[in-house]
Design a protein around this nucleic acid. Structure first.
Lengths: 218, 218
DNA sequence: TAGATTGTTAATCGATTAACAATC
DNA sequence: TAGATTGTTAATCGATTAACAATC
């Protein structure tokens, strides 16, 4: 049933987490089954699009019935890699790094944070929750010792490129980049996922300035 | 020259801030002129795409020469609304709200933060930098008194919907939503720009799990 | 069985790419 | 002038939407 080999488009990949989120919400509300039509309505998509998206990975539904919320959520979670036991480390325990460690539910997304790194000696050796803070000098040794899937880059932008390269050299698979710089890595296999606050705010700025602009254009 | 009336696609809107960022970078490096080809190479796009994008707003280049970096940056900045004197207020001065006020360069994106709001009495009345923190109860009065273009939603998710509706009722044009919930507003004109950390991390999770997945698919 | 809704192919739409005349 | 590169239209590609047979 699974269609392997076919490349999944970026557009689809970006919708998968939204499906997962919506299904989690539905499950919380006690909804057991849902049709592509109903899900589409909830999410502002078309039923066709949803069926087409799911078709990339095989059939998870049942004709005449729709989709079992719990099962579909499981399947999409698995596709996203939620059960893969991913690990992440935090680079830079400033305001943002601290906020992520303290407030962001890595666990809900299949990640466990195994360490944090900073240059500030007053932070090194302390913990945030269960997360130990090490000195950045220990990063390379740490990466040699433990498997780290993702490095979370929350250092000031001037250090971003250097830290990113160290992460890549240390064998991480992905970098979650909050440093607001375009990373040009010397490591083709490492995936960089940017969270560019500026880009997001500027897009919003554009949209609120366009009188004709309306929601459906999203 | 300007083509008015034509709707600019979301894909183009999302690239505009990237152009702006790249041009800022080029200016910093002292680059005076750039061709669509060179810019495309820098950004991983095609020259055609860049010219097509800019064509949406009129011609900013010169045949045989290319684009003047400073001028193009100005033009795109203006399109994005950087000179519009936008104002923003922060809802929720927890870790993330605090981090944004303290570290995020709102000014670089044409915004000034005019106030912050929280429920915590130990925060109310204090300042972060130049930003005064008010009690959330004062929000409606504040919105009646001052023009606020964007509300930055960094409250815990349970309060997000309520706060968002207050912002909308108070006349903001946009909501920059970090609350990790889908907002369903009763206000069709208000633009919601979501920064969903989870969606971003899950997309990264998917991509690091796909051996065939490579950068150019971005 | 009749009704509902999927899985899947085909048609359409929109975005990207190619091409080239215009012109600096 | 010759060379370079844009502005702009046309061609292509990919994503979304429509349609419907399969089937629960």
């Amino acid at each position: 049933m699974k269609k392997t080999g076919e490349k999944v488009s970026n557009a689809v990949i970006r919708r998968l987490p939204r499906y997962y989120r919506q299904l989690t919400e539905l499950r919380l509300r006690g909804v057991v089954r849902i049709s592509s039509g109903a899900l589409a309505k909830d999410m502002g998509l078309t039923a066709s699009q949803i069926r087409q998206d799911l078709f990339c990975f095989g059939g998870f539904g049942q004709q005449g019935y729709g989709y079992n919320v719990e099962k579909l959520r499981e399947e999409i979670g698995a596709i996203l890699g939620i059960n893969r036991g991913n690990t992440a480390i935090i680079l830079g325990v400033g305001n943002l790094g601290h906020a992520l460690i303290q407030n962001f539910k890595f666990g809900n997304n299949g990640f466990s944070v195994t360490a944090a790194f900073d240059v500030d000696d007053s932070l090194v050796g302390t913990k945030i929750g269960a997360v130990q803070i090490y000195h950045v000098d220990e990063l390379e040794e740490y990466l040699r010792t433990y498997r780290v899937d993702v490095g979370v880059l929350t250092v000031p932008r001037v250090f971003a490129a250097e830290m990113a390269q160290k992460l890549a050299d240390g064998g991480v698979k992905g970098i979650w980049n909050f440093a607001n710089v375009e990373l040009k890595l010397n490591a083709p296999d490492v995936i960089v996922e940017n969270v560019h606050f500026s880009d997001s705010l500027l897009a919003l700025s554009y949209m609120i300035g366009e009188p004709v602009y309306d929601e459906e254009n999203k």
